[in-house]
Nucleic acid binder design. Structure first.
Lengths: 194, 194, 194, 194
DNA sequence: GATGAATGAGTTTTCATTCAT
DNA sequence: TATGAATGAAAACTCATTCAT
């Protein structure tokens, strides 16, 4: 593996900076409402320089969401230890998922926004949702088989957990009662257990 | 009460048409990506006419979401008959809420999108969420008092129900298992009732 | 002479109102910067109505300066009684000229402004200047013949008197020392009379 | 001191060209009646380039009158040698003032015109008038003290001299009798010296 | 006489992109 | 690598004018 020259290093750093600046602005104002000039100004460079690093504005957008992709992180947080109880696992998942959205809030908001007119972004977001529901559902299925959970629509439970966390963030609700969320998911709210 | 002349009638109709056309295009492409020219062309009128009806593009956006406001409908669907069981009521709410989003999908998507950079839209959306959670939570509280439900975090339950329905629509998931949603909400998924 | 019907009367009044409103706005903002819409709004009528009274915006401008023409008034104020001394006459002329500009300040400013690109206005203004200088010069000539004044460039004296009054108004200088103006014009400022 | 690259040089030259072109057109047609497109066309460049150099049309106007400001030149022409007679000085002032207006006729007309709706321009023009009257008046005061001139309203004399020159230019009168102007100013026109 | 909806050409301004330096 | 002058197309918005009612 060859050591990179300082020129190359600097170029990489600058590229990343530009992507981060673009993310921040795209997220706040929306992709269409953000101009190349603004991004260049925020970074303190000339407009032309952006075109050295990215062939076009839309490619810059792509670079943004490719760099910060959720998927690996989502996969990591869904890799649960099978020795623990479902209660424990579900709570960890809820908390980690919530924390991940917090950490990547800009990208999250950007993608939710742009997914509505950019089908590539839409597909990407859709894949994330599918993967989350499938992985969490599959885990729940194993707990049903072990007799810890009743047979039930596990995909729906996954939707409920992830969906509740998601809307909490989208709506910027400050209170995040993930402990109670798991309790209610497990035991329901009826006074008359069937 | 004075009868309106046909000129005035026609003007009102045209105004509404323009708002509807704007909604459709704003929703598909986003507010910023939609030009006044496009809206005028879709309606078959001159660009200048839009400025006869609306002082600016942003006022046209406001007209869009003021005309189709969710709130009245949301309030209506949350007016539940107290004679029925919670299971019945929750299911009706889920179904009606889902149907409402379907019916107003364009506006819904537009507002979710624009709320991220337009604080007025954000406030409006926030108010809707708050009202939904509060009203549904208050209903659940009455069922707790009647002994039909266990004492629990009713606001969270409301979030779970509405949030699950919401994300289902946002993610365009086609399967809408509202019957099971209510069952799981009421009875949980644990094999070991506490 | 036939009495005018009240409809006709009203129409004449409205026309004059419109001309006055147009004068006020043209004068404040300039002809180009004033829109027909603005004039109609200031008068509280529909845009279309202006086109019943005036065939075009430029005709409205013409109506403005034809209605308020300086010339008759200028001629009147230069009709001096020949029995009086030049000192007396010159002072009256200065004062009346100054008062006339005050009274017609809007039109005066409008014409100075528009004369620079509208040759018709320029010609009109030029004619006024010429007529003023000629008439006042001719009067001075009679006083030279009577031996009250020395033979001199009477047209220049007219320019000096009228020009000083004019620039005073154009520059909005508040102090108007017309008495001293005439004294200096007559006797000069040199300590060594030749 | 760093030498400027030829690119920078060229940019500066172009900027000045644009200002000059704008001055010519604004002056002929008026600010409002001159479009950015026209200026760009006259210069043979794209419309957008104007916005590279000036943030808005109104800033271009400001650039025009800041670049060609009268004041320094006016101050220079009023710096008179005190060894000379008042007759000599006043004539030089009249001639130089007249020549200055000729040289800067475009700007002069533009400012007179726009001062009527642009208060910044009005203030600037007012300051010039004030400065001229004050400086020339102060000079006359020194000649009164030396006994060359009678005590009199020196500010008024300044107004008379400058005002007569000014109106001559504004009215485009071709004959400019500055020699006689000074003579009459000094000795008056009365046949009966007091 | 009076309205105001409708138009089409115009305005100022912005923007993504290119390219000589 | 980095600059910013230059472009052309398109944006939002305005306006004088027309005309059916």
């Amino acid at each position: 593996m060859q050591a990179k020259s300082s020129r190359q290093q600097q170029a990489i750093v600058r590229r990343e900076h530009l992507v981060d600046t673009a993310l921040a602005l795209f997220s706040q104002q929306g992709y269409d409402a953000t101009s190349i000039k603004q991004i260049a100004a925020a970074e303190g460079v000339a407009v032309g320089l952006l075109y050295h690093y990215f062939p076009s504005k839309s490619e810059l957008l792509r670079a943004v969401w490719e760099r910060h992709s959720f998927l690996p992180e989502l996969r990591a947080l869904l890799l649960v230890e099978h020795g623990e109880t479902a209660a424990c696992v579900l709570q960890k998942v809820a908390e980690r998922f919530s924390a991940m959205i917090d950490r990547k809030e800009s990208l999250f908001r950007l993608m939710v926004r742009e997914s509505q007119s950019n089908s590539e972004v839409a597909d990407c977001l859709h894949a994330i949702v599918e993967e989350g529901i499938t992985a969490l559902g599959a885990y729940l299925e194993t707990r049903v088989e072990l007799g810890e959970l009743r047979p039930h629509n596990t995909a729906l439970t996954a939707r409920m957990l992830l969906g509740t966390v998601l809307t909490t963030h989208l709506a910027r609700l400050p209170i995040r009662p993930w402990v109670e969320l798991v309790t209610q998911l497990l035991h329901g709210i009826s006074a008359h257990p069937n």
